[in-house]
């Protein structure tokens, strides 16, 4: 009997541990929280967008370049996400790294015209974020801390990611 109770306790403890650590979508890594670097950039219409923690929403910060194959493949999927931004309750900061306005306009206008991309014209803002490569995505919490990094390009419209992002938007990661 004692053995049975001991096994039951161990099983319940194990179950509780796993219930508290939901699996993350492929490529998403939880990291030790660190403050997000400053980000204030203009878009193609010369409107300035700044990352701050006053909106009470998580931020999806993404760096890309048109010469990068995985970035090109990923962009339509990001556009699909952006269209759901109000239901996801996320702020999007899609940042082109070190390309000219004309190059960005020609690419984004034909591939993902609904993505409001920001221009890091000299690439120095991108460098402050220390991406592992391009593309790179960071998920920043409501207090301005980077909590997740995402390795490489992903199919963001896949339910694994939309469900995960929806939970972030509910401040329930």
């Amino acid at each position: 009997m004692k053995h049975f109770i001991f096994s039951l306790v161990i099983w319940l403890v194990t179950l509780n541990v796993y219930a508290g650590t939901p699996s993350l979508p492929k490529g998403v890594l939880k990291i030790a929280p660190r403050p997000a670097p400053a980000l204030s950039l203009k878009n193609l219409d010369e409107e300035t967008f700044s990352l701050d923690n006053k909106t009470g929403r998580w931020a999806f910060v993404h760096f890309w370049a048109s010469w990068c194959g995985p970035c090109r493949r990923e962009m339509p999927s990001i556009q699909t996400l952006v269209k759901q931004s109000s239901s996801l309750k996320l702020d999007f900061f899609i940042v082109n790294t070190a390309e000219s306005e004309d190059v960005v306009f020609s690419f984004i206008g034909s591939v993902a015209p609904e993505v409001n991309t920001l221009l890091d014209l000299d690439g120095l803002v991108t460098e402050k974020w220390h991406p592992r490569g391009l593309p790179s995505t960071y998920l920043v919490d409501t207090d301005g801390y980077i909590r997740y990094i995402v390795l490489g390009g992903q199919n963001w419209h896949h339910p694994d990611y939309t469900h995960f992002l929806h939970k972030l938007g509910q401040n329930n990661p």
Binding site: A65, W67, C68, T97, A98, E99, G123, E127
Partner: peptide, 17 residues
């Protein structure tokens, strides 16, 4: 120009990863 330096750097294999 800095923007070309930046693009070039992103096309290189990182030194450490």
């Amino acid at each position: 120009e800095q923007r070309f330096q930046s693009t070039f750097r992103w096309t290189l294999l990182p030194d450490l990863r």
